[in-house]
Nucleic acid binder design. Structure first.
Lengths: 357, 357
DNA sequence: ACGTTTTCATAAACCGGTTTGCTAAACCGG
DNA sequence: CCGGTTTAGCAAACCGGTTTATGAAAACGT
């Protein structure tokens, strides 16, 4: 009838078995402290009654939740739309599962990240893409929860895991320069809050620096009009290229800060009647799983996303268990160029603007 | 110094403010019950002390967690590797966020799903890909937690959301038959536990039925050797085709039960020196976001994955709040063929085994 | 001036478990 | 038969909040 009426509590089992709550608790958690027959009988009765210990109550006494949080400053519905995030989650999940931890995803609640984190029952948190300039970082830090930052080393007193974004970006630029390109367009990932410009510690800023260094070594300067930003999605990549094109920019090479955007740009390039890589070369960033299967296979900067997730969890658990002995680790992983088929020699400056050949 | 030493409790705030715990609690939750100045003063002191209410304790008294669980019978690290799952999570996250719920991902703990669910602090769960034949379904049902099933209608007394898999599959088969194909290979998703064969309610079984119906209408029968199974990954799709090929099967059309597998098969086909779609046609299932960008753009069966996630959460929340008044809803969404570039007319039976004329 | 209602705040019970003494009985060697 | 150690199980305290019942003081009505 009224199945869900009242959930069986430990006291119900105790009464039914004619023992104390303590005994029931022991039967489940340290059966050795009970006479074998007693333990079995209690367990049987518990099973019969369909008793399941309330996990919240257990958490309260044990003062740990065996759960870690993954914090994103953007709504999850947006984060999950980037394949990069999925791969990151994969790494996090792997490490968490190995250690017997559950996974809780946390995104802003009613607009506030801090509030969402406060409400979450986790032992610690891995925050991805949280910049130093985020309005709530201070608030979050005061929460006193163990924290690990991913893709942001902005807060030196918090452990972090990131990638050599600048080096990777530079490799991309170098590659294109080597191929003879001179006209560039950067399709960048928009940092969350564009209040005071781009946070210099942000991934976007690092990659931009890398691009610039690479180009500078060939004497090329990147004008501000050559940098177009948007969210890390296929559509935004498409839009970014179209926007630049419509302002008269005619790049032979596109440097995209995410594969998703690169794919969008790719399509935009083609819709202008141009061929990839004959007319325009494109290099992405991330090397998502499907990059080799894209049309055409995407040249990109590979970064070890899964490993990022794993390492972040490892650092976090070390911090939770105090194994880190108060040390704050900053891990930087490598990024490397993977050449596939979206890059090729710069086209001869043929019918460009005024004709020439 | 000893930052994390002892977290501030409500009693500390009360003492410091010279009021009772009750007053502090009121200050946070129903300030109207306190004289305005008192409330403000308490709040100020709480802020000063850096007090944050312990969410676990709060959950315990309120008897709800404001969190919903997403259950997968496979390790999360595997689930997340399928883009399909990411999109599903997107839908779930969207609906959950809208209602102010958090998201907890649950996968088997030490090999047991039931244990993992028992340990999770959630108000209800959405289970994806959990088959009726799963060894722990009974155990899970007894947990008494509100449940919604996705991609499985095996348990009629539990609400469910799924897709017209059979119809979708049939559309795929019809399409290929119309193009003149007669030699087929099915690349299927392996159901979790292959104990007693394939669960007839499983997605795999439904799609297989759909394929068979479509083919049968053209008088084609699908031998068991024409069905190869594997996990829903690119690599498994690749391996599946290779395996079939090595046993002498020479299909002109491949029906894949997931886009990831289709992409793998695509690559395998090409590595045999065959062209897609000139020599071999391939149709996938799911229509992942990147399907149009695959090389070549993937013909596939579209299913509304995000919507699946949203509807599942909607159903779940209705059940949690008893708004469903005990009704068990079964939602079935549509699937439709999207023709892109991996399918084309069957090649003329040229050098095919025996010739036929 | 006195009974009644309202306002503001509190003490104590409660949520559902775990853990810490503590006791009574059984066991043990001499 | 006795003191000492184990064994088996219990009552009560505790985790950190919320909620209910209650009461003192202030405001109100007449």
């Amino acid at each position: 009838m009224d199945e869900r009426a009242t959930r069986i509590r430990i006291a119900d089992v105790a009464r039914e078995a004619g023992v104390s709550k303590t005994a029931v608790s022991f039967a489940f958690n340290s059966p050795g402290r009970l006479r074998p027959e007693t333990a079995t009988r209690i367990l049987e009765i518990a099973e019969l009654l369909g008793y399941r210990p309330n996990p919240v109550a257990r958490m309260l006494t044990q003062r740990r939740t065996m759960t870690i949080g993954v914090v994103t400053p953007k709504p999850l519905s947006i984060s999950f739309s980037n394949p990069y995030f999925g791969a990151f989650a994969e790494g996090v999940a792997l490490a968490a599962e190995q250690s017997g931890y559950g996974l809780h995803f946390i995104s802003p609640l009613h607009g506030s990240l801090a509030r969402a984190v406060d409400r979450a029952t986790v032992d610690g948190v891995v925050a991805i893409g949280l910049h130093g300039s985020h309005p709530e970082v201070e608030e979050l830090q005061k929460g006193g929860l163990p924290f690990v930052l991913v893709d942001s080393s902005a807060l030196p007193d918090l452990p972090s895991v990131d990638v050599d974004d600048e080096g990777g970006a530079r490799a991309a630029a170098d590659h294109l320069v080597d191929l003879g390109h001179r006209e560039f367009l950067v399709v960048g990932v928009e940092p969350p809050s564009s209040d005071r410009g781009i946070d210099p510690g942000s991934v976007t800023a690092c990659r931009l620096r890398g691009y610039r260094t690479g180009l500078a070594s060939a004497g090329i300067e990147l004008g501000d009009d050559r940098v177009v930003l948007g969210p890390a999605t296929v559509d935004a990549g498409f839009a970014a290229f179209v926007r630049a094109w419509s302002t008269g920019i005619r790049p032979t090479a596109v440097l995209a800060m995410s594969d998703a955007m690169a794919i969008g740009a790719l399509r935009a390039v083609r819709e202008q009647g141009l061929r990839v890589p004959a007319d325009v070369s494109v290099v992405g960033f991330d090397d998502i799983d499907l990059a080799p299967h894209i049309d055409p296979p995407l040249t990109t900067i590979h970064q070890p996303v899964r490993r990022k997730g794993e390492e972040a969890v490892r650092l976090l658990l070390a911090s939770v268990s105090r194994r880190d002995r108060g040390r704050t680790a900053h891990l930087r992983l490598g990024a490397r160029l993977i050449i596939r088929s979206t890059t090729g020699p710069a086209p001869r400056p043929a019918r460009r603007s005024k004709q020439a050949g």
